[in-house]
Design a protein around this nucleic acid. Structure first.
Lengths: 233, 233
DNA sequence: TCAACAAATGACCAATCAGTCACTTTTTGA
DNA sequence: TCAAAAAGTGACTGATTGGTCATTTGTTGA
């Protein structure tokens, strides 16, 4: 498994927590990692609490000591943490950038690297996030719509500024943000699928760098060939 | 319900079929429409055969006379028909076009109209298609991957030709096709969601025409502002 | 050492639902 | 008209699984 732990464990050295508290947090952490792995592998409905408990090396009942809300609470907590990571990634990418282009490319590169390091998370988000966004259960739908909107807002801010500076074509900023996120997710999945299926030896941007260059060119410069001299930069 | 029937009913006048055969096809049709509606509303797992049977006004057992494979056969048949429609749409859009741009814009417009007329189908595809693409069940995954690849191939052919004619920047054609499909689906969903949620009075390309113009500009011309004179065409 | 408390456990319960099949209703054709 | 065949039906079954709780195991501090 190539996946790394997603989360900050610095609290483990913190002296403000007693041993008992630290142990409790470690057990919570183990349960969440197990839940993430099983949800990613099976999807929300096919994941069973028995398997999560087994993978975390606890009895099923113990899960309820730590997550009284049961399956749903585990699921939402897993996503809260994933989404928090990604929000941070967006903010950091644009933080010190000199131009929109620079921030944008940093964001793409960091995202592709992030997805590559956390494949199971990408699968999980792909499998469930879209589905939940249009869930018949209004609570679930609201949770995912809220987070989705937060991502959009973060990106929209930078795009709007770039439009006002004249760097970017005057298009509706929010729609542009939506497009960028969609493309990012789509290409990351495309790479993952090609890699997994690999029926044909398909060259499909083996490095984050190449994926970034493709998406950056396509979205920033467009598909149309402007120079008759086959203008590669 | 704004959804129209998706499918060809011309066989109903065909003299090659007996009354019994025509009646049987009509009942099959009713069951498939009911299945599509319930799958779209509830998603694959939460849809029950009881509800499909009830909506189609048949007993549950009768479904098995027409679809011995049960839930799975209903589900796959629904998708076979949706995918066949969309393949036809791609082929027709590029058929008589003078340039890539013209065919591309026809394709976008036709797609947005198609999705608008068949909202429940769009929801169904969104909810299930992505999910099935990475399903742990290899049979399901293969079914969806096969259809997905067919779409890609259809589009890739036209893009490759446009690249060879010098109309389109020399990028990997298949990746471009993937991007186009992703954007189309993404924007269609964005419009649908904004319309449904409508918390804020969001202007988000109310007509297929506007959605087409946005996506066409963004993908063909790119985000970067080339003229300092705020070049609106 | 041991009593009191906390934590962990997994057998069990209740609900759900795909699929079956014995029975009823309808159609057919002689 | 009516018997035989075809079509339709929904109560039932078996399997699954989220959640519960009485019991067991471990920890603490006097």
């Amino acid at each position: 498994m190539t996946n790394q732990s997603l989360f900050d464990e610095s609290f483990m050295e913190s002296p403000v927590l007693s041993r008992k508290e630290r142990e409790r947090l470690m057990r919570r952490r183990a349960m969440l990692e197990a839940a993430r792995a099983v949800f990613a592998e099976k999807g929300y409905v096919d994941a069973t609490l028995d398997e999560i408990a087994q993978r975390a090396e606890f009895g099923k009942g113990t899960l309820y000591n730590y997550f009284p809300g049961g399956k749903d609470e585990l699921f939402f907590t897993v996503f809260e943490e994933i989404f928090a990571q990604f929000r941070q990634l967006i903010a950091q990418s644009f933080a010190g950038a000199a131009s929109f282009r620079e921030g944008f490319e940093t964001f793409l590169r960091a995202s592709f690297e992030f997805f590559e390091q956390h494949r199971d998370m990408l699968l999980l988000v792909t499998r469930e996030s879209q589905r939940m966004l249009v869930s018949p259960d209004p609570e679930r739908a609201a949770f995912f719509q809220k987070h989705h909107e937060t991502f959009l807002e973060l990106l929209t801010r930078h795009i709007q500024a770039a439009i006002e500076r004249g760097e970017v074509r005057p298009l509706p900023a929010e729609a542009v943000a939506h497009t960028i996120l969609g493309n990012l997710h789509g290409l990351a999945m495309h790479r993952l699928l090609k890699e997994c299926v690999a029926s044909k030896p398909q060259h499909v941007f083996p490095t984050p760098e190449e994926a970034t260059r493709f998406l950056s060119t396509l979205l920033l410069e467009g598909l149309l060939n402007r120079t008759q001299t086959t203008g590669k930069s």
